[in-house]
């Protein structure tokens, strides 16, 4: 009997825990979620959510990444970047590659949080370019268009590929992680040079086993002598030309971050890239 009561208590605690989880995690998600769009701030219409979801799903299928469009009006004291990082980590626990696109009405900030391969594609320069384009829309209250601009930026980066010399720079540790790859051009050049070397080696070996024809081998300095009667070097002309040397003034400054992706760590410890802008 005692045991039976104890079991009932355990079951009730389990149900409560489950309910808590549902209320805390699942309910807010279900509130305004269709697929990949999480409109917690209720600023998108159903049609807009459906359109965004369609576009996000198409890109996710193409890239194999997880991409979420998220709105919130309550971050619980987190910065927009922390909120976006945590959101991605929570919703994409088993898939590292992807991004969370956030419109945060609490901090009045738009944020792109990238993770995994997406960080390599979305360099600081590309993040800034994307935020530049999205900013105009969010400040006008065109939230769907703002998301579409962020998604377009992500798509463009994916299509452009990882830029040559890309590296992740960890803001906290200063650690640099270079992206290493062999491009098709490099492989072709290496293949061409290798073939040439192969042919040269083959021909030079064969050549070294053959007689060298047509070489008289006569050294005129060794077997000849010279007696000069006249040895004249007469100066017949002299001229001096000059030209001004063009010096470049100022010098080109580095745009800083053309191939760099700054990264940081979310509360889960995952490495994230991205950027944000106040509106």
């Amino acid at each position: 009997m005692v045991k039976c009561r104890s079991d009932q208590k355990k079951a009730a605690a389990g149900i409560l825990a489950a309910l808590f989880l549902i209320v805390y995690y699942i309910a807010p998600i279900l509130a305004a979620q269709i697929g990949t769009v999480y409109d917690d701030a209720n600023i998108l219409t159903e049609e807009e959510i459906a359109e965004l979801d369609g576009r996000l799903s198409a890109f996710m299928e193409e890239s194999g990444w997880n991409v979420f469009a998220v709105t919130t009006d309550h971050t619980g004291g987190k910065t927009a970047r922390q909120y976006a990082d945590d959101f991605f980590d929570r919703h994409s626990a088993d898939q590292e590659d992807g991004a969370a696109l956030l419109i945060d009405l609490d901090n009045r900030e738009i944020t792109i949080s990238t993770c995994g391969a997406a960080t390599r594609y979305m360099t600081d320069q590309r993040i800034e370019r994307t935020l530049d384009q999205a900013y105009d829309y969010v400040s006008d209250g065109a939230y769907k268009d703002c998301f579409l601009q962020m998604l377009t930026g992500l798509c463009s980066a994916y299509e452009e590929g990882i830029p040559k010399g890309q590296y992740n720079y960890d803001e906290q540790t200063g650690e640099v992680s270079r992206y290493r790859q062999i491009t098709l051009a490099e492989a072709l050049i290496a293949g061409f040079v290798a073939c040439m070397v192969g042919v040269i080696v083959f021909l030079s070996i064969i050549g070294s086993y053959r007689l060298k024809f047509g070489v008289s081998g006569y050294d005129a300095h060794q077997f000849g002598s010279l007696r000069l009667r006249r040895n004249e070097n007469n100066l017949i002309g002299q001229h001096i030309s000059h030209h001004r040397i063009q010096t470049s003034s100022g010098g080109a400054s580095s745009n800083g971050g053309g191939a760099r992706s700054k990264t940081h760590h979310s509360s889960s410890g995952r490495s994230h890239g991205g950027g944000s802008r106040k509106f």
Binding site: L226, L228, R230, E232, N234, Q238, I240, S241, H242, I245
Partner: peptide
């Protein structure tokens, strides 16, 4: 920042006996 180039031209003659 001026680069100068001087060119001197010579007429050369060698005459003699080669064995």
């Amino acid at each position: 920042n001026v680069q100068y180039t001087e060119t001197k031209q010579y007429r050369i003659l060698r005459e003699g006996q080669v064995t």
